[in-house]
Amino acid sequence: MKAIVTERAGGPDVLQPAEMPRPRIERDDQVLVEIRAVGVNPIDYKMRNDLDRFPVTKPAILGCDGAGVVTEVGAGVERFKPGDEVYFCQPGFNGRQGTYAEYAVVDEALVANKPKSLDFVHAAAAPLVLITAWEALYDRAQLQNGQTVLVPGGAGGVGHMAIQLARIAGARVATSVSSDDKARFVGELGAERVIRYRSEDVVEAVRAWTGGEGVDVAFDTLGDDVFRQCCAAAKVYGDLVTILLPPPDIDWTNARVRNLRISLEMMLTPVLLELPEWEKHQGHILTSAAELFDQARLRVQVARTFPLEEAAAAQEFLEKQHPIGKVVLTLG
């Protein structure tokens, strides 16, 4: 099969096309998927830059998100059959294979039927960012109807999902963006307060929007100064969820005095630590989200597509351009 592989860490040029053996089902709870499209995420180029930090097998096939057609199922698989159209997120950890390839063997628990309303490109764009935002807002922060949420970088992959999931929960949303196009986009998604971070102080804008209190939930998807921003923008006894490590030099005094609840979110944990029950949870998230897509209550934005063989260019585009929505690789 065709695949994009890397033998070493480095820049985009380490990603090379290769012919690889088609993967085989090795456990009863696995399915073989013929991949039609692949979502590209920041974790892909982070793995490429620091390959030896991750539990991958070389030559490594990167990629977590995929959408395609089931071609074979293990003896214990009950929910899928050949011909089913599916989407999933599975990093190539602990003997697994990533998605930059024509086929992938995937744990059944991580797979869900593709939303009927989405083509393969849009379905492949959704899983990682969707699960991340869902776990952060619904599982970590336990977001409630009527609460207020800050989502910095709301036009990005995780950000645009978070805005919509917060609105579905009945929350009011503030977000920060850098351009007119991004401001229009997040407004269409339901953001109530759109902050231009290049010309406005985000913390002051949030406090003014909330009557001086701060938001119930601040969701940091960018790290460093944005994490500090979220600490200051959250209300007393509020929640801050981050998908990155907090800055090592942060002064925690203000957060401690104000009794912030700090939560960490990493959606790769179930595969990284081999946690079957949490894999099932992520599969259930995708199943629930498919209903929301098909009800037109949730959408995923695709910024640009690249053919599989241009995976290096796709990663470079995502890393440098910070587009509205997602980047997707197409096959066939």
Rank of each mutant, 00 (worst) to 15 (best):
T6G: 05
A9G: 15
Q16L: 12
P17H: 04
E26R: 12
V38A: 08
I43T: 14
P55I: 13
T57D: 13
I61T: 14
G63E: 11
V69I: 15
T71F: 05
E72Y: 03
G74Y: 01
G76K: 06
Y87C: 13
C89N: 09
R96S: 11
G98L: 06
A104K: 03
K116V: 09
F120E: 04
A123W: 11
Y138W: 13
D139G: 05
Q144A: 15
Q144P: 02
Q147Y: 03
V149K: 01
Q164R: 13
I168T: 04
G170F: 02
V173K: 03
A174T: 07
S176G: 10
D180N: 10
R184C: 10
R184T: 15
G187R: 12
A191I: 00
E192W: 12
R196T: 01
V203P: 00
A205L: 09
R207P: 01
E213Y: 13
G214V: 05
A218W: 00
G223W: 03
V226Y: 06
V226D: 01
V226M: 14
A233R: 00
I243Q: 05
L245V: 09
L245G: 10
D249G: 09
N254P: 07
L272V: 03
E274V: 12
Q282Y: 07
I285M: 00
A296P: 06
R297T: 06
P307I: 04
A314H: 01
E319F: 05
Q321E: 15
H322F: 12
G325Y: 02
